[in-house]
């Protein structure tokens, strides 16, 4: 595990570079294929509405994967993530309108831990609503 981020240079409250992730229907279909999760709520609007959703929604795991990129891009070595968890608080609704949804992810260092590790606290927002809760990663720094 090798990241060049030096534990000694990181302070609680340090912000990681934020990123925005556009999600359209094509992205969901591709993720369904790659992950093997073919639940129709992620690609079939008629089915999604039948089960009470406003429209097709993104896989929670897709949103979790996108949010992780803010951490792994910062680290340089994705293998430096030692713990990563999220709560799926609200679905990311992905309309078939030529644009889709946008998930905006910000992150900051929430705590410095023993063993040159830090806890990163993430916030993911889509359409002005938080879509992940308790989103935290523990990472091993240099």
């Amino acid at each position: 595990m090798a990241t060049s981020i030096d534990y000694d240079e990181i302070e609680v409250g340090s912000e990681l570079p934020a990123q925005s992730f556009p999600i359209d229907r094509a992205a969901l279909v591709r993720y369904a294929g790659a992950s093997g999760d073919f639940n129709p709520i992620h690609w079939n609007e008629r089915f999604a509405r039948e089960v009470g959703l406003p429209d097709v929604i993104a896989h929670g795991m897709f949103t979790m994967a996108e949010a992780a990129r803010v951490v792994t891009d910062w680290l340089g070595d994705p293998g430096a993530v030692v713990d990563y968890g999220v709560r799926f608080t609200r679905p990311v609704v992905v309309p078939d309108d030529g644009t889709g949804a946008l998930v905006e992810v910000t992150a900051k260092v929430g705590a410095k831990l023993d063993g040159r590790r830090v806890r990163v606290d993430l916030t993911a927002v889509s359409g002005d609503q938080k879509v992940l809760g308790m989103a935290r990663a523990v990472v091993q720094l240099a």
Binding site: Y31, D73, P78
Partner: peptide, 25 residues
């Protein structure tokens, strides 16, 4: 690689064994 492509992640650690080795994997 397919999974990394699907989440739009271009990190070489997922694609290039030499890049992964340089990181200690």
């Amino acid at each position: 690689r397919e999974f990394a492509d699907a989440v739009g992640d271009a990190s070489p650690a997922y694609r290039d064994a030499d890049a992964a080795k340089a990181l200690g994997h």
